[in-house]
Nucleic acid binder design. Structure first.
Lengths: 406, 406
DNA sequence: CAGATTTCGACGAAAGGAACACAAACCTCG
DNA sequence: CGAGGTTTGTGTTCCTTTCGTCGAAATCTG
């Protein structure tokens, strides 16, 4: 319970505010930083000077905007000044990326893998290889902040334990520790659930920028949920929070892989859609795409299947709207793809069942970040220590002013 | 987006930390404050001196504990130094209390009212009368911080609009403004949902002290939910959050007052229990008590009804556990009363359906605060502005040291 | 009663941002 | 093309707040 603040705290908080603004909103003039943070010009000058000295920011000549007054130099986040390694373990692919401050992707690879139960050893080794490949193209002294990992499973945040990942066939895998060893890096490895990181990415770089109450519903094989409420990610006590796929919605429903019956996932997951559309439950993403194509062509079976999914989506979302009162709901994974076809049924059901919040108060939109959404989310997770306290990376006694004034 | 911090911010934060600790944990010695806040003795001395000067705290002679070393004077929160008015509008009663800093109840009244649709005018007037009565016994210059109101309805936090209160028959009642006018006070009026305030009270003064991830499930006529996650109350974008009573759990269920079908409330609410126990749905709280008495006496009908309720409670809680991953679940309202009878069925169902979190990770306990829980929660809500920034109540330039050293 | 322990009280030091004044860079208008 | 207005950078001084350290005070132990 260390609530006490001291003057150093102020400096840390102010550095954090500046780096955060630069990272999230991109290049800003110094005077824009003044208005964004509420600090004075003097303070901004000093702190930006320190950031420039630490390589986290660069100052560039002002651009002429046609406004009167002395032009203010532009401060850019320096993507080379701090980088993170982002990894993703999805059901049918793994991917890695190096992302620089400000969210610039400095390199990315993805390899497809067959679905099915994938060995932990294989995946960890392959990820390490992917990462090594990416880092080959980078300077050896790359300022790596940390590693972020997105995984399709239930994750304990504190230590990166994957307690259960049904679609990978994993149970109690200490993924964080395993990856730290395999990667041979000295920085922390943070592991997050795919939906938790998806909402982080959409909140920072996607469809929910600037919105503090966001619900992301992520459909892949299973159904995951990521929640940001009051601007803070919801993780729960152990970090297991957000598992909305296993809300009971239909006691008369089908058995779920989790051992329960009638979970939302069994009604709206990929399997449910494929079954309703008369396809093999193993048809996977291709099956979903084929169903969408059928629906676009007017196939009654496909349209009815999608309508049914939309209704169940609306039922579950109504419960979630009543619980979370989000300002925006982002549909990700295959839910983003099917959104145009399910929208009507979904909103109809939602309007009928949501209690206080009129439909007008919540926007429902598909995710805008594509394939690499989870990598971006993992990167954001990995940047968090830097954003929360850049002072740890800015040389402590560096009274370096007068920098980069050219 | 005012992130910038200044030295004054530090002082505010430190004063806040001290007042908060005193309010939540009660009298502490100055040296305990040092360890609790991480500040130095010098800082504590100065800040406590200011608080004493402002009347928010009093310093008393040290008590001898038998430990070596110079004894540290005890700092008490001063209940007379800052008070709030707490109001409660329940389905069958209204109540008012004056609560002092530290949570001491300085006066309270409650009057029963018949159930049923109660006019807003009547209730507002009656509450104002109750409050006036309480304030009669108090000094005229009582340092009133603000007013907190607990109401059995869906509340928009920002302005205290009760958007819908089915069990009172209210729709879109600007309760905050109405009460402010009727009370004739110059301080803000904060309105909160009963479950939201219940969880606040249990978190501060009840069964969930020190736990940062709490789910309170409040059963009265309806079912409400209060959530604290990561130490912060979950309110949602408009403050409508936490309406867990209207999660859809049974599409084949009964119609709900909210217009939907198969809401959790229809399966576990008071009405469901009474119906299962073969009683009139209007039997109210007395009917619940009678059912419990029957169960205690071994009545099969009552026991089976309670078992059924327990199962549905478990189903709903499983979903909530998967979503929130709480560390503790507090059962309040009549759920607290029936807990011993439903525990087994509830835990059985919960264990079967909760995904990642083993049952061992979440404690399920009845609420410990009794009848006045909501009043206490309303008081905590009302104290929040003071706790968040006591500097507004401490005279700004009062460099008053050397106080109360006697 | 001497010693150990813990805290108090007070002072100066340190750190950080605010405030102010001035200079520089840009636009606009005559 | 130049004067004036506007906005922002720069540098200095000041203010606020806490920290660190010293000697003194209050208590327990042996």
């Amino acid at each position: 319970m260390d609530l006490g603040q001291r003057s150093e705290t102020v400096r840390r908080a102010n550095l954090s505010a500046i780096v955060r603004v630069l990272h999230e909103r991109g290049p800003l003039s110094r005077s824009e930083l003044v208005t964004a943070t509420g600090l004075t010009r003097s303070a901004i000058r000093g702190l930006v000077g320190e950031l420039a000295g630490a390589g986290l920011a660069t100052e560039a000549a002002a651009v002429r905007l046609g406004t009167p007054g002395r032009p203010s130099p532009h401060v850019h986040p320096n993507p080379e000044g701090a980088v993170v390694l982002a990894l993703e373990i999805a059901v049918d692919s793994i991917a890695a990326a190096i992302v620089g401050l400000g969210g610039r992707v400095l390199g990315a690879t993805r390899i497809e893998r067959p679905r099915g139960h994938s060995g932990v050893d294989d995946i960890v080794t392959d990820l390490a290889t992917l990462a090594a490949g990416l880092r080959l193209g980078r300077p050896a002294d790359d300022p790596l902040i940390s590693v972020g990992v997105a995984v399709a499973g239930v994750v304990r945040r504190q230590d990166g334990l994957v307690s259960v990942a049904p679609n990978l066939g994993w149970t109690d895998v200490p993924l964080g520790a395993r990856l730290a060893r395999a990667l041979g890096v000295m920085v922390p490895v943070f592991v997050g659930n795919e939906a938790d990181l998806g909402v982080l990415a959409e909140h920072r770089r996607g469809a929910a920028i600037g919105v503090d109450d966001v619900l992301l519903v992520w459909g892949e094989v299973g159904v995951g949920g990521g929640v940001i409420t009051g601007g803070m990610p919801l993780t729960g006590a152990e970090g297991y929070g957000g598992e909305i796929g296993h809300m009971p919605v239909n006691p008369a429903g089908s058995p779920c892989a989790c051992g329960s019956v009638g979970c939302w996932e069994t009604e709206v997951g990929e399997g449910a859609l494929l079954a309703l559309a008369g396809r093999s439950p193993d048809a996977g993403r291709a099956g979903v795409e084929a169903t969408l194509a059928d629906a676009a062509a007017g196939s009654p079976v496909a349209l009815s299947a999608l309508d049914q999914i939309g209704r169940w989506l609306g039922v579950g979302l109504a419960g979630l709207v009543n619980v979370f009162n989000p300002r925006i709901i982002v549909l990700g994974g295959h839910f983003g793809r099917i959104h145009p076809f399910v929208r009507e049924a979904l909103e109809d059901e939602l309007a009928r069942r949501s209690l206080a919040a009129p439909l007008a108060l919540v926007r429902i939109v598909p995710a805008v970040l594509g394939e690499n959404a989870l990598l971006l989310g993992a990167a954001e997770l990995a940047f968090e220590p830097l954003l929360a306290d850049p002072a740890n990376w800015v040389r402590p006694t560096g009274g370096a002013l007068h920098l980069a004034t050219a």
